[in-house]
Nucleic acid binder design. Structure first.
Lengths: 206, 206
DNA sequence: CAAGCAAACGGACAATTGTCCGTTTTCATT
DNA sequence: AATGAAAACGGACAATTGTCCGTTTGCTTG
Protein backbone atom coordinates (compact mmCIF):
# COMPACT_ATOMS: atom_id res chain seq x y z
CA UNK A 1 0.00 0.00 0.00
CA UNK A 2 1.11 3.53 -0.58
CA UNK A 3 0.47 4.67 2.98
CA UNK A 4 2.29 2.69 5.57
CA UNK A 5 0.55 2.10 8.89
CA UNK A 6 2.00 3.56 12.07
CA UNK A 7 4.84 1.38 13.26
CA UNK A 8 3.94 -0.93 16.12
CA UNK A 9 6.50 0.46 18.56
CA UNK A 10 5.43 3.99 17.72
CA UNK A 11 1.83 3.22 18.52
CA UNK A 12 2.86 1.78 21.87
CA UNK A 13 4.90 4.85 22.62
CA UNK A 14 1.93 7.01 21.91
CA UNK A 15 -0.21 5.11 24.39
CA UNK A 16 2.61 5.18 26.92
CA UNK A 17 2.94 8.95 26.58
CA UNK A 18 -0.77 9.49 27.01
CA UNK A 19 -0.99 7.35 30.11
CA UNK A 20 2.10 8.90 31.64
CA UNK A 21 1.02 12.45 30.95
CA UNK A 22 -2.47 11.84 32.22
CA UNK A 23 -1.31 10.47 35.54
CA UNK A 24 1.27 13.23 35.97
CA UNK A 25 -1.40 15.82 35.23
CA UNK A 26 -3.67 14.26 37.81
CA UNK A 27 -0.88 14.41 40.34
CA UNK A 28 0.51 17.89 39.79
CA UNK A 29 -1.94 19.68 37.54
CA UNK A 30 -1.33 20.37 33.87
CA UNK A 31 0.74 23.46 34.52
CA UNK A 32 2.84 21.69 37.11
CA UNK A 33 4.23 19.19 34.64
CA UNK A 34 6.89 19.89 32.03
CA UNK A 35 7.36 18.15 28.72
CA UNK A 36 10.80 17.08 29.85
CA UNK A 37 9.31 15.49 32.94
CA UNK A 38 6.79 13.58 30.87
CA UNK A 39 9.50 12.22 28.59
CA UNK A 40 11.72 11.25 31.52
CA UNK A 41 8.90 9.56 33.41
CA UNK A 42 7.81 7.66 30.33
CA UNK A 43 11.42 6.64 29.78
CA UNK A 44 11.66 8.03 26.27
CA UNK A 45 13.68 10.76 24.63
CA UNK A 46 12.66 14.39 24.40
CA UNK A 47 12.72 14.20 20.62
CA UNK A 48 10.33 11.26 20.60
CA UNK A 49 7.84 13.20 22.65
CA UNK A 50 8.05 16.34 20.55
CA UNK A 51 7.81 14.41 17.28
CA UNK A 52 4.38 13.18 18.33
CA UNK A 53 3.17 16.34 20.05
CA UNK A 54 4.43 19.75 19.04
CA UNK A 55 3.66 21.18 22.48
CA UNK A 56 1.70 20.55 25.64
CA UNK A 57 -1.50 21.83 24.09
CA UNK A 58 -1.20 19.27 21.36
CA UNK A 59 -0.80 16.57 23.93
CA UNK A 60 -3.81 17.81 25.90
CA UNK A 61 -5.85 17.69 22.74
CA UNK A 62 -5.13 13.99 22.49
CA UNK A 63 -5.72 13.35 26.18
CA UNK A 64 -9.15 14.93 26.04
CA UNK A 65 -10.10 12.83 23.05
CA UNK A 66 -11.69 9.97 24.99
CA UNK A 67 -13.77 12.35 27.02
CA UNK A 68 -14.76 14.23 23.88
CA UNK A 69 -15.97 11.07 22.26
CA UNK A 70 -18.22 10.19 25.18
CA UNK A 71 -19.52 13.76 25.21
CA UNK A 72 -20.23 13.75 21.51
CA UNK A 73 -22.11 10.49 21.79
CA UNK A 74 -24.22 11.63 24.70
CA UNK A 75 -25.20 14.87 23.02
CA UNK A 76 -25.85 13.01 19.79
CA UNK A 77 -28.13 10.55 21.55
CA UNK A 78 -30.04 13.31 23.28
CA UNK A 79 -30.58 15.20 20.06
CA UNK A 80 -31.69 12.07 18.26
CA UNK A 81 -34.24 11.25 20.95
CA UNK A 82 -35.67 14.73 21.31
CA UNK A 83 -36.35 15.90 17.81
CA UNK A 84 -39.89 16.84 18.72
CA UNK A 85 -38.93 19.17 21.54
CA UNK A 86 -38.68 22.89 20.76
CA UNK A 87 -35.27 23.79 19.34
CA UNK A 88 -34.92 26.36 22.13
CA UNK A 89 -35.10 23.65 24.76
CA UNK A 90 -32.62 21.47 22.94
CA UNK A 91 -30.17 24.31 22.54
CA UNK A 92 -30.44 25.18 26.20
CA UNK A 93 -29.70 21.59 27.12
CA UNK A 94 -26.68 21.46 24.83
CA UNK A 95 -25.27 24.66 26.27
CA UNK A 96 -25.73 23.34 29.80
CA UNK A 97 -23.87 20.19 28.82
CA UNK A 98 -21.06 22.24 27.39
CA UNK A 99 -20.65 24.18 30.62
CA UNK A 100 -20.45 20.97 32.62
CA UNK A 101 -17.92 19.42 30.27
CA UNK A 102 -15.88 22.58 29.97
CA UNK A 103 -15.69 23.13 33.72
CA UNK A 104 -14.63 19.53 34.21
CA UNK A 105 -11.84 19.72 31.62
CA UNK A 106 -11.02 23.38 31.93
CA UNK A 107 -7.34 22.95 32.64
CA UNK A 108 -6.80 20.87 29.53
CA UNK A 109 -8.86 23.22 27.37
CA UNK A 110 -7.06 26.29 28.65
CA UNK A 111 -3.73 24.71 27.87
CA UNK A 112 -4.90 23.86 24.37
CA UNK A 113 -6.06 27.42 23.80
CA UNK A 114 -2.99 29.04 25.33
CA UNK A 115 -0.72 27.75 22.61
CA UNK A 116 -3.26 28.77 20.09
CA UNK A 117 -2.95 32.41 21.12
CA UNK A 118 0.80 32.36 21.29
CA UNK A 119 1.50 30.86 17.90
CA UNK A 120 -1.05 32.34 15.54
CA UNK A 121 -1.23 31.11 11.95
CA UNK A 122 1.10 28.81 10.00
CA UNK A 123 1.57 25.82 12.25
CA UNK A 124 0.80 22.26 11.45
CA UNK A 125 0.00 21.71 15.13
CA UNK A 126 -3.62 20.92 15.81
CA UNK A 127 -5.57 23.78 17.27
CA UNK A 128 -8.70 23.91 19.38
CA UNK A 129 -10.63 25.14 16.36
CA UNK A 130 -9.78 21.95 14.51
CA UNK A 131 -10.64 19.69 17.41
CA UNK A 132 -13.62 17.43 17.12
CA UNK A 133 -14.97 18.94 20.34
CA UNK A 134 -15.17 22.40 18.80
CA UNK A 135 -16.35 21.25 15.40
CA UNK A 136 -19.04 19.03 16.83
CA UNK A 137 -20.33 21.70 19.18
CA UNK A 138 -20.32 24.34 16.48
CA UNK A 139 -22.16 22.03 14.13
CA UNK A 140 -24.93 21.15 16.56
CA UNK A 141 -25.33 24.67 17.92
CA UNK A 142 -25.48 26.24 14.47
CA UNK A 143 -28.09 23.71 13.36
CA UNK A 144 -30.25 24.52 16.34
CA UNK A 145 -29.79 28.25 15.83
CA UNK A 146 -30.82 27.88 12.20
CA UNK A 147 -33.88 25.93 13.24
CA UNK A 148 -34.82 28.63 15.73
CA UNK A 149 -34.21 31.35 13.16
CA UNK A 150 -36.64 29.74 10.70
CA UNK A 151 -39.57 30.74 12.83
CA UNK A 152 -38.35 34.31 13.16
CA UNK A 153 -38.82 37.05 10.61
CA UNK A 154 -36.19 39.54 9.51
CA UNK A 155 -32.51 39.23 8.72
CA UNK A 156 -30.71 36.60 10.71
CA UNK A 157 -27.08 36.31 11.64
CA UNK A 158 -24.94 33.57 10.19
CA UNK A 159 -25.64 30.60 12.51
CA UNK A 160 -22.11 29.28 12.16
CA UNK A 161 -20.64 32.59 13.23
CA UNK A 162 -23.06 32.85 16.14
CA UNK A 163 -22.28 29.31 17.25
CA UNK A 164 -18.58 30.07 17.05
CA UNK A 165 -19.04 33.26 19.05
CA UNK A 166 -20.97 31.38 21.72
CA UNK A 167 -18.23 28.80 22.11
CA UNK A 168 -15.61 31.56 22.34
CA UNK A 169 -17.67 33.37 24.95
CA UNK A 170 -18.03 30.20 26.99
CA UNK A 171 -14.35 29.26 26.85
CA UNK A 172 -12.72 28.69 30.23
CA UNK A 173 -10.67 31.87 30.56
CA UNK A 174 -13.56 34.25 30.08
CA UNK A 175 -16.09 32.01 31.76
CA UNK A 176 -14.21 31.65 35.03
CA UNK A 177 -13.22 35.28 35.14
CA UNK A 178 -16.73 36.62 34.91
CA UNK A 179 -18.15 33.85 37.04
CA UNK A 180 -15.86 34.84 39.88
CA UNK A 181 -16.25 38.57 39.40
CA UNK A 182 -20.03 38.44 39.44
CA UNK A 183 -20.05 35.77 42.11
CA UNK A 184 -22.31 33.43 40.18
CA UNK A 185 -22.64 29.71 40.68
CA UNK A 186 -22.34 27.34 37.76
CA UNK A 187 -26.10 26.99 37.55
CA UNK A 188 -26.57 30.74 37.57
CA UNK A 189 -24.06 31.02 34.75
CA UNK A 190 -26.01 28.47 32.74
CA UNK A 191 -29.17 30.48 33.19
CA UNK A 192 -27.50 33.71 32.21
CA UNK A 193 -26.06 32.14 29.08
CA UNK A 194 -29.53 30.89 28.24
CA UNK A 195 -31.10 34.28 28.68
CA UNK A 196 -28.31 35.80 26.62
CA UNK A 197 -29.52 33.62 23.76
CA UNK A 198 -33.19 34.37 24.45
CA UNK A 199 -33.74 30.79 25.58
CA UNK A 200 -36.11 29.61 28.28
CA UNK A 201 -34.54 29.08 31.66
CA UNK A 202 -34.38 25.46 32.66
CA UNK A 203 -36.50 24.26 35.56
CA UNK A 204 -33.63 22.15 36.74
CA UNK A 205 -31.53 25.27 37.16
CA UNK A 206 -32.25 27.48 40.13
CA UNK B 1 4.83 61.13 52.70
CA UNK B 2 4.11 57.50 53.34
CA UNK B 3 4.26 56.43 49.70
CA UNK B 4 7.45 57.32 47.93
CA UNK B 5 7.19 58.30 44.27
CA UNK B 6 8.80 56.12 41.60
CA UNK B 7 12.48 56.78 41.51
CA UNK B 8 13.61 59.04 38.69
CA UNK B 9 15.99 56.52 37.11
CA UNK B 10 13.33 53.85 37.27
CA UNK B 11 10.85 56.04 35.43
CA UNK B 12 13.39 56.67 32.70
CA UNK B 13 14.08 52.97 32.39
CA UNK B 14 10.41 52.33 31.98
CA UNK B 15 10.17 54.76 29.10
CA UNK B 16 13.33 53.34 27.58
CA UNK B 17 11.94 49.82 27.74
CA UNK B 18 8.68 50.85 26.15
CA UNK B 19 10.36 52.67 23.29
CA UNK B 20 12.84 49.87 22.69
CA UNK B 21 10.21 47.15 22.75
CA UNK B 22 7.90 49.08 20.49
CA UNK B 23 10.50 49.61 17.81
CA UNK B 24 11.69 46.00 18.01
CA UNK B 25 8.10 44.81 17.70
CA UNK B 26 7.63 47.00 14.65
CA UNK B 27 10.73 45.51 13.12
CA UNK B 28 10.31 41.81 13.83
CA UNK B 29 6.76 41.40 15.06
CA UNK B 30 5.84 40.76 18.67
CA UNK B 31 6.51 37.05 18.49
CA UNK B 32 9.86 37.61 16.82
CA UNK B 33 11.32 39.45 19.78
CA UNK B 34 12.47 37.88 23.04
CA UNK B 35 12.54 39.49 26.44
CA UNK B 36 16.28 38.93 26.54
CA UNK B 37 16.65 40.78 23.25
CA UNK B 38 14.64 43.71 24.57
CA UNK B 39 16.80 43.96 27.66
CA UNK B 40 20.00 43.70 25.65
CA UNK B 41 18.92 46.29 23.11
CA UNK B 42 17.81 48.68 25.81
CA UNK B 43 21.14 48.11 27.54
CA UNK B 44 19.65 47.02 30.82
CA UNK B 45 19.72 43.81 32.82
CA UNK B 46 17.26 40.96 32.47
CA UNK B 47 16.23 41.40 36.09
CA UNK B 48 15.38 45.03 35.56
CA UNK B 49 13.09 44.19 32.70
CA UNK B 50 11.32 41.41 34.52
CA UNK B 51 10.88 43.48 37.67
CA UNK B 52 8.80 45.96 35.69
CA UNK B 53 7.00 43.47 33.46
CA UNK B 54 6.34 39.93 34.58
CA UNK B 55 6.17 38.75 30.96
CA UNK B 56 5.74 39.89 27.40
CA UNK B 57 1.99 40.19 27.76
CA UNK B 58 2.44 42.58 30.64
CA UNK B 59 4.74 44.68 28.51
CA UNK B 60 2.27 44.67 25.62
CA UNK B 61 -0.42 45.86 27.97
CA UNK B 62 1.66 48.94 28.71
CA UNK B 63 2.59 49.50 25.08
CA UNK B 64 -1.03 49.50 24.01
CA UNK B 65 -1.91 52.02 26.70
CA UNK B 66 -1.47 55.14 24.56
CA UNK B 67 -3.60 53.70 21.82
CA UNK B 68 -6.21 52.63 24.34
CA UNK B 69 -6.46 56.12 25.73
CA UNK B 70 -7.10 57.65 22.32
CA UNK B 71 -9.66 54.95 21.63
CA UNK B 72 -11.46 55.52 24.91
CA UNK B 73 -11.61 59.24 24.28
CA UNK B 74 -12.96 58.88 20.77
CA UNK B 75 -15.67 56.46 21.83
CA UNK B 76 -16.48 58.66 24.81
CA UNK B 77 -16.83 61.72 22.60
CA UNK B 78 -19.07 59.89 20.16
CA UNK B 79 -21.34 58.61 22.91
CA UNK B 80 -21.56 62.07 24.48
CA UNK B 81 -22.53 63.67 21.21
CA UNK B 82 -25.08 61.08 20.15
CA UNK B 83 -27.25 60.56 23.18
CA UNK B 84 -30.38 61.12 21.14
CA UNK B 85 -29.67 58.39 18.59
CA UNK B 86 -31.22 54.96 19.19
CA UNK B 87 -29.14 52.83 21.52
CA UNK B 88 -29.02 50.16 18.81
CA UNK B 89 -27.22 52.51 16.45
CA UNK B 90 -24.78 53.58 19.11
CA UNK B 91 -23.99 50.01 20.07
CA UNK B 92 -23.44 49.08 16.43
CA UNK B 93 -21.02 51.96 16.05
CA UNK B 94 -19.11 50.99 19.18
CA UNK B 95 -18.78 47.39 18.03
CA UNK B 96 -17.50 48.54 14.65
CA UNK B 97 -14.92 50.68 16.37
CA UNK B 98 -13.82 47.75 18.45
CA UNK B 99 -13.27 45.60 15.40
CA UNK B 100 -11.13 48.28 13.79
CA UNK B 101 -9.07 48.80 16.94
CA UNK B 102 -8.72 45.11 17.63
CA UNK B 103 -7.61 44.26 14.11
CA UNK B 104 -5.04 47.04 14.23
CA UNK B 105 -3.56 45.90 17.53
CA UNK B 106 -4.31 42.21 17.25
CA UNK B 107 -0.75 41.01 17.76
CA UNK B 108 -0.42 42.90 21.03
CA UNK B 109 -3.82 41.79 22.25
CA UNK B 110 -3.16 38.16 21.38
CA UNK B 111 0.09 38.26 23.29
CA UNK B 112 -1.66 39.76 26.29
CA UNK B 113 -4.30 37.06 26.23
CA UNK B 114 -1.88 34.20 25.61
CA UNK B 115 -0.25 34.60 29.00
CA UNK B 116 -3.66 34.91 30.51
CA UNK B 117 -4.58 31.41 29.36
CA UNK B 118 -1.30 29.90 30.38
CA UNK B 119 -1.15 31.16 33.93
CA UNK B 120 -4.68 31.07 35.26
CA UNK B 121 -5.46 32.53 38.68
CA UNK B 122 -3.13 33.80 41.41
CA UNK B 123 -0.77 36.14 39.65
CA UNK B 124 -0.19 39.74 40.43
CA UNK B 125 0.52 40.32 36.72
CA UNK B 126 -2.03 42.50 35.01
CA UNK B 127 -4.44 40.61 32.80
CA UNK B 128 -6.50 41.65 29.82
CA UNK B 129 -9.60 41.54 31.98
CA UNK B 130 -8.15 44.20 34.23
CA UNK B 131 -7.01 46.41 31.37
CA UNK B 132 -8.71 49.74 30.87
CA UNK B 133 -9.48 48.71 27.30
CA UNK B 134 -11.55 45.75 28.44
CA UNK B 135 -13.17 47.53 31.36
CA UNK B 136 -14.11 50.57 29.34
CA UNK B 137 -15.58 48.51 26.51
CA UNK B 138 -17.50 46.32 28.88
CA UNK B 139 -18.85 49.35 30.70
CA UNK B 140 -20.10 51.11 27.58
CA UNK B 141 -21.47 47.98 25.93
CA UNK B 142 -23.32 46.88 29.03
CA UNK B 143 -24.85 50.33 29.44
CA UNK B 144 -26.10 50.28 25.88
CA UNK B 145 -27.41 46.75 26.26
CA UNK B 146 -29.28 47.76 29.39
CA UNK B 147 -30.77 50.74 27.57
CA UNK B 148 -31.91 48.49 24.74
CA UNK B 149 -33.33 45.96 27.17
CA UNK B 150 -35.49 48.60 28.85
CA UNK B 151 -37.74 48.74 25.82
CA UNK B 152 -38.09 44.98 25.66
CA UNK B 153 -40.43 42.85 27.73
CA UNK B 154 -39.57 39.59 29.42
CA UNK B 155 -36.53 38.39 31.34
CA UNK B 156 -33.29 39.91 30.22
CA UNK B 157 -29.77 38.60 30.49
CA UNK B 158 -27.27 40.30 32.73
CA UNK B 159 -25.90 43.12 30.53
CA UNK B 160 -22.45 42.87 32.06
CA UNK B 161 -22.23 39.20 31.27
CA UNK B 162 -23.48 39.75 27.75
CA UNK B 163 -21.00 42.55 27.18
CA UNK B 164 -18.22 40.35 28.48
CA UNK B 165 -19.31 37.50 26.22
CA UNK B 166 -19.33 39.82 23.22
CA UNK B 167 -15.80 40.98 23.89
CA UNK B 168 -14.63 37.39 24.29
CA UNK B 169 -16.32 36.42 21.06
CA UNK B 170 -14.67 39.30 19.22
CA UNK B 171 -11.20 38.64 20.58
CA UNK B 172 -8.49 38.23 17.95
CA UNK B 173 -7.97 34.47 18.03
CA UNK B 174 -11.57 33.55 17.43
CA UNK B 175 -12.27 36.52 15.20
CA UNK B 176 -9.50 35.83 12.73
CA UNK B 177 -10.11 32.13 12.69
CA UNK B 178 -13.74 32.37 11.70
CA UNK B 179 -13.13 35.32 9.43
CA UNK B 180 -10.68 33.28 7.40
CA UNK B 181 -12.73 30.10 7.47
CA UNK B 182 -15.89 31.78 6.24
CA UNK B 183 -13.96 34.04 3.89
CA UNK B 184 -15.51 37.22 5.20
CA UNK B 185 -14.09 40.69 4.88
CA UNK B 186 -13.77 42.93 7.88
CA UNK B 187 -16.92 44.83 6.93
CA UNK B 188 -18.86 41.61 6.51
CA UNK B 189 -17.73 40.52 9.93
CA UNK B 190 -18.96 43.78 11.40
CA UNK B 191 -22.36 43.23 9.85
CA UNK B 192 -22.58 39.69 11.08
CA UNK B 193 -21.69 40.72 14.59
CA UNK B 194 -24.38 43.37 14.39
CA UNK B 195 -26.99 40.90 13.25
CA UNK B 196 -25.88 38.52 15.96
CA UNK B 197 -26.93 41.21 18.45
CA UNK B 198 -30.13 42.00 16.57
CA UNK B 199 -28.77 45.39 15.60
CA UNK B 200 -29.46 47.27 12.39
CA UNK B 201 -26.83 46.84 9.69
CA UNK B 202 -24.85 50.00 9.06
CA UNK B 203 -25.24 51.78 5.74
CA UNK B 204 -21.53 52.38 5.67
CA UNK B 205 -20.92 48.63 5.70
CA UNK B 206 -21.50 46.74 2.50
C1' DC C 1 16.46 -15.21 5.86
C1' DA C 2 19.29 -11.32 4.28
C1' DA C 3 19.35 -6.76 3.09
C1' DG C 4 18.33 -2.10 2.85
C1' DC C 5 15.65 1.71 3.68
C1' DA C 6 12.51 4.60 5.73
C1' DA C 7 10.73 5.59 10.08
C1' DA C 8 11.50 6.25 14.75
C1' DC C 9 14.60 7.01 18.48
C1' DG C 10 16.96 9.74 22.18
C1' DG C 11 19.87 12.68 24.18
C1' DA C 12 22.79 16.52 23.44
C1' DC C 13 22.30 21.23 22.21
C1' DA C 14 20.32 25.90 21.49
C1' DA C 15 17.05 29.38 22.77
C1' DT C 16 13.88 31.49 25.69
C1' DT C 17 11.79 32.34 29.98
C1' DG C 18 12.00 33.46 34.62
C1' DT C 19 14.59 33.95 39.34
C1' DC C 20 18.01 35.28 42.69
C1' DC C 21 21.15 37.91 45.13
C1' DG C 22 25.31 40.70 45.86
C1' DT C 23 26.17 45.40 44.42
C1' DT C 24 25.03 50.11 43.22
C1' DT C 25 22.18 54.24 43.22
C1' DT C 26 18.88 57.48 44.81
C1' DC C 27 16.84 60.29 48.13
C1' DA C 28 15.24 61.81 52.70
C1' DT C 29 17.30 63.08 56.86
C1' DT C 30 20.68 65.11 59.51
C1' DA D 1 27.77 67.47 52.54
C1' DA D 2 27.53 63.04 54.98
C1' DT D 3 24.81 58.97 55.83
C1' DG D 4 21.99 55.11 55.81
C1' DA D 5 18.05 52.59 54.37
C1' DA D 6 15.10 51.41 50.68
C1' DA D 7 14.79 50.81 45.98
C1' DA D 8 16.66 49.50 41.76
C1' DC D 9 20.17 47.25 39.19
C1' DG D 10 22.19 43.51 36.25
C1' DG D 11 24.08 39.48 35.07
C1' DA D 12 24.75 34.83 36.44
C1' DC D 13 21.94 30.86 37.09
C1' DA D 14 18.09 27.51 36.79
C1' DA D 15 14.25 25.64 34.32
C1' DT D 16 11.59 24.87 30.41
C1' DT D 17 10.77 24.66 25.62
C1' DG D 18 11.96 23.24 21.22
C1' DT D 19 15.47 21.38 17.56
C1' DC D 20 18.87 18.50 15.36
C1' DC D 21 21.25 14.65 13.88
C1' DG D 22 23.88 10.35 14.32
C1' DT D 23 22.15 5.83 15.56
C1' DT D 24 18.88 2.11 16.02
C1' DT D 25 14.83 -0.59 14.79
C1' DG D 26 11.07 -2.51 12.40
C1' DC D 27 9.10 -3.64 8.00
C1' DT D 28 9.21 -4.90 3.22
C1' DT D 29 11.32 -6.87 -0.70
C1' DG D 30 13.88 -10.38 -3.01
Amino acid sequence: MSVRAERKDAAEHRKLILRTAESLFDLHGVRGVSMHQIARTAGIGQGTLYRKYAHKGDLCLDIIQDYTQAFVEEVGRYLAKNREKPAEDRLGWVLDMWIDAMEKKSELIMTIQAHHCAESEESRAASFFQSSLYLFMRGRISELLAEIAESRPGPNADPVLTAHALICAMAPVGHFHIKRELGYTKEQMKNHYRRMCYLPVSNANV
